[in-house]
């Protein structure tokens, strides 16, 4: 685990919205999408869809899932599992925490398999 990164105050990401954190900040292979479910919970996944080049931070977030804005692949926010075609590969997930009204990201730095 790398050191935690402070992302933004909680109110900066509305329910159902996402924020892309650039890989120059996270130090990970891909950018990271911090995603807020419609129940208010925060999750973080690699930003680029495993199907084609598309940003999941721009996706549709609801009901524990994010849907890619381009070709409608869906991923589980909790596990990163690909839930439907056209995605077939799961997406890497990262830890995210809320401390004192701030969102903190703990990127998974394990090498890409």
């Amino acid at each position: 685990m790398s050191p935690a990164i402070r992302v933004a105050p909680v109110e900066d990401i509305a329910e159902g919205e996402g924020l892309k954190v650039d890989r120059s900040v996270t130090g990970t292979a891909d950018h990271i999408a911090v995603l807020r479910d419609d129940d208010g919970e925060f999750y973080a996944l690699d930003d680029t869809c495993t199907h084609e080049e598309a940003s999941l931070a721009e996706g549709w977030i609801e009901n524990g899932q994010v849907e890619c804005p381009l070709h409608a692949a869906r991923f589980c926010l909790r596990t990163g599992a690909a839930l439907c075609l056209p995605a077939t590969r799961h997406i890497r997930r990262h830890q995210v925490e809320v401390r004192d009204g701030e969102i903190w990201l703990l990127p998974d730095m394990a090498p890409v398999p």
Binding site: P69, L70, H71
Partner: peptide, 13 residues
């Protein structure tokens, strides 16, 4: 409301 217009034939967005 949308973020992109994705063609449902072959998927150009």
């Amino acid at each position: 409301t949308t973020r992109n217009f994705t063609c449902t034939y072959h998927g150009w967005s």
